[in-house]
Write a protein that binds this DNA or RNA. Structure first.
Length: 633
RNA sequence: GCCUUCGUAGCCUAGCCCGGUGGGGCGUUACCUUGGUAAGGUAAUGGUCGCGGGUCCAAAUCCCGCCGAAGGCUCCA
């Protein structure tokens, strides 16, 4: 049995003529039903009454969710090539109808055996369109979502069926030797995080009812906050947060530049009707922000691809210049995610995305480049403060690609050194032949993708991007899409979630030293020493270390408590002893508040060594705490 | 978008079930305290109880609608 289930504003149908001789009696009058779930139903060989009830039970589950209690059973032969006898089909359809009515559903039915004309208006929400497939005996309902506009029936059906056949994923674990083990057979004993990630991806149930921990943290630490004056998912960044974000942006840009990416800048908005863009958008009906200008419809970019592809389209490229790498750090990319999906810094509608495309001559070149970027991404994240224990990788490809490039995939697996999740498709549906994405698993056991890279085999043609080969002929390059860090906001989300997790395990939560807004907090023991402490601060600050002074009027103990709550890595109380001896008693957060005696020079070199060659920005707030407003209570 | 829960001062929160014009903490401000490594004391300040409507002599409290947030579903190029 195959069912295409559509939540409709209304449907109008009209029987035209009988197609088979056992057709039911019906009048040739137009029937209109409002606010209804329509089940286009095909009865296949061996379908029976049990299956009819199962199908109605499943539909009832949706009726409950959709708050609708009206069903239209619409016999529809075109969903299958394995039809049952018409007499049997009619019996099963009638079973469905009877059972649905028994269950108290207001049930309508279109006549069986007729050629019918219909018009339907489908709701825009995700549950509105569902395709289901039932087989007798071990009934395994396979679900797939159809992405279609809902006008012509052939289109509806083909989209639903295509989605179901092509997009079915087969899940494996890719072991470090390159071999694949079905997920069910893998022993997750030492890979708890991978198991969580696999569960998340394959969609098993999980039950958490808790605010994501990074949300109260981002507010309390005055990093970022929601902005009620904007659209959800557009974030307000306070001075400390802006500094952290800016340092991350600088760092990732620097790493990509060293790798050879040429930084460019491209527009934020694009014309809906540009031919290349239009076909891309049709293929991936994303949720864009739409802008109406005087005479044009524009959308806000949801990735850096458009600008770079249009630029590459116009460029004259020789094979000698490949691989050619373009880079942009988009501030911002926009995706109008559904309201229920926007969360904290994890999923935003406006986000900062580094995106580096490499145009490659062939698979050999693409693979070399892919490996370089794989290493680059792991390196970038580890310098940001996210190491291999913090994330899991998913590798995604078709079974043909695996057969052809098995050694390459094995090399990636070996390089990572931990088992990965593998999603394998029978056929290629997306524009890429190979993709990996690196996923942070948070305190709610949910995963969020950070870095990613893909081998794109479609967009060179779509955007007419060509290079000239040795023979002087035009060729389409392969295009790699890489974000070495993933969205910058999401890096901050991951760092905060990680800090929270460390707090639970008994460590002092903190940001990496190079991202800490205050690296050294000086606390004068009384006003008398403020002058000397200010001199000390200047001495430290000239060495590119962010130092500030708590000159407020509260007690010493309270100032220490507040510095600890701000996650300040080094806290130094300065009084007569220190000024006379020149030795500072430094409270080190990383060592649980242990105090160490250091001279100013020792302190500076200790910190500078740890900062290495990371980008630097000066203190984002006034030197004296008394001069700072409280951005958040 | 759907379902569930929630919305009380800049922040956290009691009160709501059982209607009688809101209580505490943090912060902020002032004064006292000038303190040696995680919350010193006193006082002041601060509330259209998310918005709109209804029931009632009377609504933070009960009912309806709307808006916003979180969780779940779905989605995530």
């Amino acid at each position: 049995m195959r069912i295409l289930q559509l939540h409709s504003n209304f449907i109008v149908f009209k029987p035209i003529e009988k197609e088979i001789n056992i057709a039911e009696e019906a009048t040739k009058e137009e029937v209109r039903v409002e606010e209804v779930v329509v089940l286009f139903t095909t009865i296949e060989e061996d379908d029976n009454a049990t299956l009819a009830q199962k199908a109605i039970d499943d539909a009832r589950a949706f009726l409950g969710k959709l708050k609708v209690n009206r069903l239209l059973i619409y016999p529809f032969a075109h969903l299958s090539s394995n039809l049952s006898q018409p007499s049997q089909a009619l019996a099963v359809i009638k079973d469905m109808e009877t059972y649905a009515k028994q269950k108290g559903i207001e049930t309508f039915r279109a006549p069986f055996g007729w050629n019918k004309q219909f018009t339907i208006s489908i709701k825009g929400h995700p549950l509105a369109e569902m395709a289901r497939n039932y087989t007798p005996a071990p009934a395994v309902p396979a679900e797939a979502q159809a992405t279609c506009e809902g006008k012509k029936e052939e289109e509806l059906i083909s989209a639903a069926l295509k989605a179901e056949d092509t997009m079915k994923s087969y899940w494996h674990i890719l072991q470090t030797d390159g071999s694949l083990v079905p997920v069910e057979e893998f022993k997750f004993k030492d890979h708890g995080n991978l198991q969580k990630f696999a569960n998340y991806e394959i969609k098993k149930t999980r039950a958490v009812t808790q605010m994501p921990p990074h949300v109260p943290l981002m507010k309390r630490l005055e990093i970022a906050d929601y902005e009620p004056g904007s659209d959800p998912g557009n974030i307000r960044w306070y001075p400390k947060g802006r500094m952290i974000k800016s340092l991350l942006e600088q760092y990732v840009s620097l790493c990509v530049a060293q790798y050879g990416g040429m930084e460019v800048e491209t527009p934020l908005m694009y014309d809906f009707n540009h031919p290349s863009l239009a076909s891309y958008l049709n293929r991936f009906p994303a949720r864009q922000y739409v802008l109406k200008s005087e005479d044009k419809e524009l959308f806000l970019r949801f990735a850096a691809c458009f600008g770079q592809f249009l630029m590459a389209h116009d460029a004259q490229i020789s094979y000698k210049q490949l691989p050619l790498k373009l880079f942009e750090l988009t501030r911002y990319s926009f995706r109008r995610e559904k309201s229920g999906e926007v969360v904290g810094l994890k999923r935003l509608r406006a986000f900062t995305m580094p995106d580096c495309h490499a145009f490659c001559a062939d698979y050999e070149q693409a693979k070399t480049e892919f490996m370089t970027r794989f290493n680059l991404s792991i390196d970038v994240l580890s310098n940001i403060g996210l190491v291999k224990d913090d994330y899991e990788i998913a590798m995604r490809f078709t079974k043909d690609f695996y057969a052809e490039h098995k050694e390459f995939i094995a090399a990636l697996a070996q390089k990572f050194g931990k088992p990965m999740l593998a999603e394998v498709w029978n056929e290629r549906f997306f524009y890429f032949a190979l993709k990996w994405d690196l996923n942070f698993v948070d305190n709610q056991d949910k995963a969020a993708a950070l870095s990613t890279d893909q081998i794109d085999v479609e967009n060179a043609q779509r955007y007419e991007i060509t290079y000239v080969d040795e023979k002087g002929e035009k060729q389409y390059p392969l295009i790699l899409h890489c974000s070495p860090s993933g969205a910058i906001e999401r890096n901050i989300y991951a760092l905060l979630e990680k800090a929270y997790r460390e707090q639970i395990t008994g460590k002092a939560p903190m940001l990496p030293l190079w991202l800490s807004p205050t690296q050294v907090r000086l606390i004068p023991i009384s006003d008398k020493y403020l002058g000397k402490v200010t001199e000390l601060a200047q001495q430290i600050a000239v060495k590119c270390i962010r130092v500030d002074i708590d000159d407020s009027s509260s007690t010493l103990q309270k100032k220490i408590r507040e510095a600890e709550q701000e996650w300040v890595p080094y806290i130094i109380v300065v009084g007569e002893k220190e000024i006379e001896s020149g030795t500072l008693s430094v409270r080190i957060r990383e060592e649980k508040g242990k105090q160490e005696n250091l001279t100013t020079e020792q302190l500076i070199s200790k910190i500078s060594e740890r900062l290495e060659d990371k980008p630097f920005k000066p203190l984002p707030l006034p030197l004296y705490l008394s001069k700072r407003p409280a951005f958040h209570g």
